[in-house]
Design a protein around this nucleic acid. Structure first.
Length: 487
RNA sequence: GCCCCCAUCGUCUAGAGGCCUAGGACAUCAGCCUUUCAAGCUGAAGAUCAGGGGUCCGAAUCCCCUUGGGGGCACCA
């Protein structure tokens, strides 16, 4: 399955701007990109905007943004099919002249009615070819009506079409199961079939790597290449990515657009790594691969055939791994915008970079995504903590002894001059024994007083970052709460 | 309904006839570490390799059938 080395590798990603790109679309882009980079070929971006009616505002931008975010840089394009209309028309008319296509005057209404009837009779819905062999007289009459005809492909009635898929092997279709599909619509735009064949040829695409959903359109394309007397590219149909309900990924599956993952605080490196493993694998154990390693090892032979359901848990895990791999500086840089956006307005801006850095050093290994950073770190920034007073008693202490423990700790800490984790520990650890409390209970109590929660970064480090003044203030606040606690 | 594709733990996957008493990862559970959480480490559970027929000395791996799933069947891509 080595690509033909006589012709340079040229692949394309050809999305249509009828929606925002989801993980499936982007996985296709990634495989194309990896293939191109692996073989030192070209990765071409082409926007298939031939459906005027379904065009979605902002989709093109979302596609470009997604690719850029993931670092899938393209070598040519973006080409827009809407700007190449004359080429398709010319090809369509050429086909017409050579007898490979014909004009069809059937109205959409008639076609729709016909389809409904066929479905009702449990027949395969297919164009009945009414216009395929019109008598000259009839043609003239229809022409005079002023109806704008479409151009349909004259699909061979007999025989079969076989092509060799790089992933599936030989695939054969009987020609009589194929339709006389439309090449040029009455609005003057080409259909996908015509436009992609023409462009793939004109752009000298060597390999078409696209999702499995296109497999059954491929014989039509092969027939078109034959009619045009063009050499078809090699085809490879990639396994689909399915939603949790095992159905084709769509808007119905919620947060599947790539930009959504960006917003949720996933790192592009993690997403690339994760996506690469959806349908491709290096061996029986390697999970973490850098971009360079992916390029180095990527090959179509190791692309599987079975559709994959993406496993969000695993993506999260992997993102956590990548987050922890970041240097503190990089992590701060990545997390800062999220803090800035999500922290309450009451927190003074701009955030102090040094302080943020100290805080984030304690958060980094606890975050799976960037979006949870503000939540994990909020108590470092708030002046007053809101928490359920009962939390202070979660160590099964009564309010009185809890208050006593905090008071003693507070007094002890007043005397601490060097406010760092080591000093804090040597000041507080002995107190547990003096108070006859086990360390779990004692430190747990102080943790709630300091952070307002039972799960937080290590106590002494947290206190060191917060600073003496804020810690003592929080102890006071805790005492306040305990004093009003309904006994 | 017709056509095409696919079929290994819940999920992602390794496996290209003997290395498989089916390996890894996520998730789950347990233990260790530990001031909590997280991370880390160790271990457990989890797949009669969809089912049935062949071929072969030998099949998860090859062939056939069945079943299941997916995709396609537009003047959408």
């Amino acid at each position: 399955m080595q690509p033909e080395l006589k012709s340079p590798v040229r692949v394309r990603f050809a999305p249509s701007p009828t929606g925002y790109p989801h993980l499936g679309n982007i996985r296709t882009a990634l495989f194309n990109w990896l293939f191109a980079r692996h073989y030192g070929g070209k990765f071409i971006l082409r926007i298939e905007d031939t459906d005027v009616a379904r065009k979605v505002e902002g989709a093109v931008e979302a596609i470009l943004d997604s690719l850029q975010w993931l670092g899938l840089d393209w070598d040519e394009g973006p080409y827009f099919q809407s700007q190449r209309l004359p080429i398709y028309r010319e090809t369509g008319h050429k086909l017409l002249e050579e007898g490979h296509a014909y004009l069809c005057y059937c109205s959409p209404e008639r076609l729709e009615a016909m389809r409904q009837e066929q479905i009702k009779r449990k027949q395969p819905p297919k164009y009945d070819r009414r216009c395929r062999d019109l008598a000259q007289q009839e043609k003239t009459r229809l022409q005079a009506t002023g109806i704008t005809p479409v151009i349909r492909f004259t699909t061979p009635l007999e025989g079969e079409t076989t092509f060799h898929d790089l992933i599936r092997g030989p695939v054969t279709f009987k020609n009589d199961t194929l339709d006389d599909f439309v090449l040029l619509k009455s609005d003057g735009y080409p259909t996908y079939h015509l436009a992609s064949v023409v462009d793939d040829h004109m752009m000298a695409i060597s390999h078409v790597l696209r999702a499995d959903e296109w497999l059954s359109s491929t014989p039509r394309h092969v027939l078109l290449y034959q009619a045009l007397n063009w050499q078809p590219p090699q085809f490879a149909h990639l396994p689909m990515i399915l939603g949790p309900d095992r159905a084709k990924l769509s808007k119905r599956h919620g947060a599947t657009t790539v930009t959504e993952y960006q917003k949720q605080g996933y790192l592009p490196e993690a997403v690339v790594n994760f996506l690469a493993l959806l349908g491709w694998s290096l061996d029986d154990r390697t999970e973490l691969l850098s971009r360079e390693e992916l390029i180095k090892h990527f090959s179509l032979e190791r692309v599987g055939k079975t559709p994959a359901i993406f496993n969000k848990d695993k993506l999260e895990w992997m993102n956590g791994v990548y987050l922890r791999k970041l240097s503190l500086g990089e992590f701060v840089q990545q997390a800062l915008p999220f803090l800035d956006r999500e922290l309450p307005k009451s927190v003074e801006r701009p955030l102090d970079k040094t302080y943020v850095s100290q805080v984030l050093s304690l958060i980094q290994e606890r975050a799976k995504t960037l979006v949870e950073v503000p939540q994990l770190a909020s108590f470092f920034f708030l002046d007053e903590l809101q928490y359920d007073t009962g939390l202070l008693l979660s160590g099964k202490l009564d309010a009185k002894s809890a208050a006593n423990a905090i008071t003693i700790a507070s007094q002890k800490l007043e005397e601490v001059m060097t406010w760092d984790a080591t000093a804090l520990e040597s000041a507080l650890r002995p107190l547990a024994a003096e108070l006859n409390l086990d360390t779990g209970k004692f430190f747990g109590l102080l943790r709630v007083a300091i952070t307002g929660r039972t799960a937080a970064p290590p106590l002494f480090q947290t206190m060191a970052v917060l600073g003496k003044e804020r810690c003592l203030k929080r102890f006071n606040a805790a005492l306040q709460l305990l004093s009003t606690y309904s006994n």
